[in-house]
Computed example of a mutant assay.
Amino acid sequence: MTSTALHPVTLDKFSQLPNIEESPAWELIDGQVLQKPMPTFHHSRLQKRLVTSIDNTNGPYEAFPELRCILSQNSIVPDITIIHQSRIPTDNEPFKGAPNWLIEILSPGQSTTKLITKIQVCLDEGTQLGWLIDSQETVVMIFMSNQPLRLFRGDSLLPVLSDLSLQLTPHQIFGWLQS
Rank of each mutant, 00 (worst) to 15 (best):
M1K: 08
M1H: 14
M1Y: 05
M1I: 08
T2E: 11
S3T: 11
S3V: 15
H7I: 15
H7M: 06
P8Y: 06
P8A: 12
F14N: 02
S15Q: 13
S15F: 12
L17S: 08
L17V: 09
P18T: 11
P18L: 10
I20D: 04
E21I: 12
E22V: 01
S23G: 03
S23M: 11
S23T: 15
P24K: 11
A25S: 13
A25V: 00
A25H: 15
A25Q: 12
E27V: 11
L28C: 12
I29E: 00
G31Q: 00
G31N: 04
G31C: 02
Q32L: 11
V33G: 02
Q35N: 14
K36F: 04
P37I: 03
P37K: 02
M38F: 13
P39W: 04
P39Q: 10
T40S: 14
F41C: 06
S44A: 15
L46W: 03
Q47H: 05
Q47T: 13
K48T: 15
K48M: 14
R49V: 14
L50F: 06
S53K: 10
P60W: 12
E62K: 10
E62A: 07
E62Y: 14
L67K: 06
I70L: 13
L71I: 06
S72Q: 14
S72L: 12
N74M: 07
N74L: 04
I76Q: 00
I76G: 02
V77N: 02
V77Q: 00
P78M: 05
P78V: 03
D79N: 05
D79V: 01
I80W: 03
T81C: 14
I82K: 02
I82D: 03
I82C: 12
I82V: 15
I83R: 06
H84P: 00
H84C: 09
S86W: 02
I88F: 07
P89W: 08
N92Q: 09
P94S: 07
K96S: 07
G97H: 07
A98Y: 02
P99C: 09
N100F: 06
L102Y: 01
I105P: 01
L106N: 07
G109T: 07
Q110V: 06
Q110F: 00
T112V: 10
T113Y: 14
K114G: 02
I116F: 11
T117H: 13
T117V: 07
K118F: 04
K118R: 10
K118M: 04
K118D: 00
L123A: 07
L123N: 07
Q128K: 15
Q128E: 13
G130M: 03
W131G: 01
L132F: 04
L132R: 01
I133Q: 02
E137Q: 08
T138A: 08
T138D: 13
V139F: 06
V140Q: 02
I142E: 02
F143H: 11
S145N: 14
N146Y: 06
N146Q: 15
Q147M: 10
P148Y: 02
P148M: 08
L151C: 00
F152S: 05
F152N: 03
R153H: 12
G154N: 10
D155G: 09
D155C: 01
L157K: 13
P159R: 03
P159S: 09
V160Y: 04
L161R: 01
S162L: 12
S165V: 07
L166H: 05
Q167M: 14
Q167W: 00
Q167D: 10
L168F: 05
L168P: 11
T169E: 12
Q172N: 10
I173Y: 01
F174W: 08
G175C: 08
G175R: 12
L177F: 13
L177W: 08
